[in-house]
Simulated assay, not measured.
Amino acid sequence: MTQTPRIFDGHNDALLRLWRGDGPATDAFAAEAPGHITLPRAKAGRFGGGFFAMFALDAATGLDLAIFDNPPYDTPLPPQMDRALAWDIVQGQARVAQELDAAGQVWLCRTGAELRRAWDAGDPMAMLLHLEGAECIGPDLEGLDALYDLGLRSIGPVWSRPTAFAHGVPFRFPSDGDTGPGLTDAGRALVRECVRRRMVVDCSHMTMKGFYDVADEGTALVATHSNAHGISPSARNLTDDQLRAIGETNGMVGLNFGTVFLRPDGRRDAAGALDHAMAHLDRMIALAGEDHVGLGSDFDGAPMPEGLDSAADLPNLVQRMRDAGYGAALIDKLCHENWLRYLERTLP
């Protein structure tokens, strides 16, 4: 049997899950369950690492996944989050990342060369620290230095709510991402500073106007966990023109496994969603180019397809690629090599 290539993941919410749990995070990460990404499940599915997001969850305005059961839907954007609260939450998740690193369960990477060494070593898994929504950073960029020193190398200026830097798209179906304004002046300053520091700027969750504003600042367009709007018309997905722009700027887009972003009907239903995942991959490759597409699972943050219940099931997705006629070289690109090459030329 052909071995499954190792997987580099563009986005997951494992740190949020571990931060919210009881007991030591290192114990929970080493356990069989629960969670989409644990050490046993990662080993079983050849999950080799990726972007681990820190996200300031506002429990008072949490997202009710039941809305996805009856499209169409249109959730209003929650209010901007208090910066001090967001800072405390993100610092808690940063501590979890450092605990996993200190325990030898992950290798927290800060440079492109370090990432490649970690990947080639194979164990422990490689971790890149990502911030999903920059609520914890001041409009004058206060806090960015401290986060960078902790290992932060990737920032999404928004989740699906406004920040001082930009607007996020609502969870709306059907809709494209043209739902609000783009980058603020502070947002442009943040993007410029990320470019100067050679950090990744993630456009997932950003409005269409914000997406093109990022391009205007001279950086590659990256959407770590977004899909093709032409297959599933969610506001969270990218139009054909946006996918082309990612390829034209030498950027990256990662396939989101969340059923609500895969299915053409926008439903949470897990049945058949892996078939739709292949349709998204086909379109993303055709438009962005085969060197600019990877995976961005949204593990521990979204409802998963039937047959892809956790990282342990990643071989099922790879087998779908083989069944669709994807060759070994293309599969390696999608599974890890495109992300690694992009990050080697982008990170410090």
Results as ranks from 00 to 15, higher is better:
53 A>Q: 03
54 M>T: 10
54 M>Y: 02
54 M>E: 02
56 A>V: 11
56 A>P: 04
57 L>F: 06
58 D>C: 11
58 D>M: 06
58 D>K: 01
60 A>L: 12
60 A>R: 03
61 T>A: 13
61 T>I: 06
62 G>R: 08
63 L>Q: 06
63 L>K: 05
64 D>Q: 13
64 D>W: 10
65 L>C: 05
65 L>P: 04
65 L>S: 11
66 A>D: 15
69 D>P: 03
70 N>M: 10
71 P>G: 09
71 P>Y: 03
72 P>I: 12
73 Y>W: 11
74 D>L: 05
75 T>L: 14
76 P>L: 14
77 L>Q: 04
78 P>Q: 12
78 P>Y: 05
79 P>T: 08
81 M>L: 15
83 R>L: 10
83 R>D: 11
83 R>P: 12
84 A>W: 09
84 A>G: 07
85 L>G: 07
86 A>D: 04
88 D>E: 13
88 D>A: 15
89 I>R: 02
89 I>E: 02
89 I>W: 05
94 A>G: 07
95 R>Q: 15
95 R>L: 12
96 V>I: 15
97 A>L: 06
99 E>L: 07
99 E>N: 05
100 L>V: 06
102 A>W: 00
102 A>L: 08
104 G>E: 08
105 Q>K: 03
106 V>I: 15
106 V>H: 00
107 W>D: 07
107 W>Q: 07
108 L>V: 12
108 L>M: 13
108 L>S: 02
108 L>Q: 02
109 C>S: 13
110 R>H: 11
111 T>E: 10
112 G>E: 11
114 E>D: 13
115 L>S: 01
115 L>G: 02
117 R>T: 13
117 R>F: 10
118 A>K: 01
118 A>L: 14
118 A>Y: 02
120 D>I: 09
121 A>Q: 09
123 D>Q: 14
124 P>I: 08
124 P>H: 07
125 M>E: 03
127 M>D: 02
128 L>I: 13
131 L>I: 05
131 L>R: 01
133 G>D: 06
134 A>E: 02
135 E>H: 07
137 I>Y: 09
140 D>M: 04
141 L>P: 01
142 E>Y: 02
144 L>A: 11
147 L>A: 13
148 Y>I: 00
154 S>K: 01
154 S>W: 00
155 I>F: 04
156 G>A: 15
156 G>V: 03
156 G>D: 04
156 G>K: 01
156 G>H: 04
156 G>I: 03
157 P>M: 11
158 V>K: 00
158 V>G: 02
159 W>Q: 05
160 S>K: 04
160 S>Q: 03
161 R>A: 14
162 P>V: 07
162 P>W: 06
163 T>N: 09
163 T>M: 09
164 A>V: 05
164 A>H: 05
166 A>V: 14
166 A>C: 15
170 P>W: 09
170 P>H: 10
171 F>H: 06
172 R>H: 14
172 R>K: 15
173 F>K: 00
175 S>K: 00
177 G>R: 00
178 D>A: 14
179 T>K: 04
181 P>N: 13
